[in-house]
Design a protein around this nucleic acid. Structure first.
Ligand SMILES: [Mn+2]
Ligand SMILES: [Mn+2]
Ligand SMILES: [Zn+2]
Ligand SMILES: [Zn+2]
Lengths: 137, 137
DNA sequence: AATGTTTTGCAACCCCGTTGCATTTGGTTA
DNA sequence: TAACCAAATGCAACGGGGTTGCAAAACATT
C-alpha cells in the first residue's frame, strides 16, 4: 500500500478505486498487460470504458507506455522513472514470448539504425519475438 | 506485361481479376499499402472480403509481408525474391513517416540485439518513425 | 456537511476483420 | 468447344475492440 496513492498524487490524479486497482495490477505483474488482461483480472468491478480511459490517462501522465506487438494488439507496461507527462523515455527493446504470450521490457536499449539520406527518426520500436526464459526448458 | 500473371502462376495461384489488380497496386506503389488503401484505389470493383482474402493469400505465398506499425494498423509490402511460401526472409527495417504516412521498406538489416540468458529470438521487428526524405524539405 | 469538479457507468455507435454459404469464375479434361 | 470440378468471389451476418455523449456517482476542497 506504500506507494500507489503517492504515484497518483504525484501525477495530479484524483485517487479512485479503479485507478488504484489498475495501477496495482501493473506493479504486481512482471510482464506487460493488455486491456483484455485487466478486464479479466478485475471481473466486473469496473466498466470496460473506465479501463480504457484509465489506461489512456496513465499513458498521458507517463506512468505506463504502450508496446506495439507483431500480432497487432496493444500492451501496456510501467514506465521507467524518467518518464513524465507528454514525454516518454522508453528506449528499451521489448520481447514477446510466442509460447506463453508474456511481453517483457528488456534492459537492452534500442540499437542505432542506419537511415537513408534525408530521413530522420523520432522514435524507434524494436520488438523481438521468440521463447522467453521460462518457456525454454 | 511480363510479370503479374507470371508471379501468380509461379506461386500456383489461379489468375483472377482481383489478384491481378491488387498485385499491380503493389508493383506500382513505392510504399507499403494497407487494406484501406486498396479498398479506396479499387473503388467498388471488389468486395472488402475479397481484398482481405487476397492479402492473406499473398502473405502465405511469400509475395507480400506484413509490417507492424506503432499506430497498430497492418500494412503490406512486396517481399524480396528470397521469400517463399511459409518462410519469409524480410529482415530489413521499416520506416513510417509521421507526416505523409508512407511506410518504406529500407535496405538496412535489423541489427543484432542482446537478449537475457535463456531467451531466444525467432523474429525481430524494427519500426522507425520520423520524417522521410520527401517530407524533410 | 455543502459545494463544484472530476470520474464513472451505461447505452449506443462505428470500424475492422472473420465466417458460412450460395453463386460465379477459372482450370482441366473429354 | 463443351462439360465438369475445384477454387474464388460476393453477400449477409456476426463479433471484438475501441470511442463518444450524457446522466449519476465519487472525489477534493471549503
Ligand atoms: Mn517497455
Ligand atoms: Mn518490408
Ligand atoms: Zn514465455
Ligand atoms: Zn513522408
Amino acid at each position: 500500500m506504500a506507494g500507489i496513492s503517492d504515484i497518483l498524487k504525484r501525477n495530479q490524479l484524483s485517487i479512485t478505486d479503479s485507478r488504484k486497482k489498475i495501477l496495482d495490477y501493473f506493479l504486481q505483474s512482471d510482464g506487460a498487460l493488455a486491456h483484455a488482461d485487466i478486464e479479466k483480472m478485475s471481473g466486473d468491478k469496473f466498466d470496460r470504458v473506465t479501463i480504457y480511459r484509465t489506461l489512456q490517462t496513465f499513458v498521458e501522465k507517463g506512468i505506463i507506455h504502450t508496446i506495439p506487438t507483431s500480432d497487432n494488439s496493444v500492451k501496456y507496461a510501467l514506465c521507467k522513472d524518467e518518464c513524465v507527462a507528454g514525454h516518454h523515455h522508453d528506449d528499451h527493446i521489448h520481447f514477446l514470448c510466442d509460447d506463453c504470450g508474456t511481453t517483457y521490457c528488456l534492459e537492452s536499449n534500442v540499437p542505432p539504425v542506419q537511415l537513408p539520406i534525408g530521413f530522420s527518426a523520432s522514435r524507434t520500436d524494436v520488438v523481438v519475438s521468440g521463447k522467453c526464459g521460462k518457456c525454454s526448458n
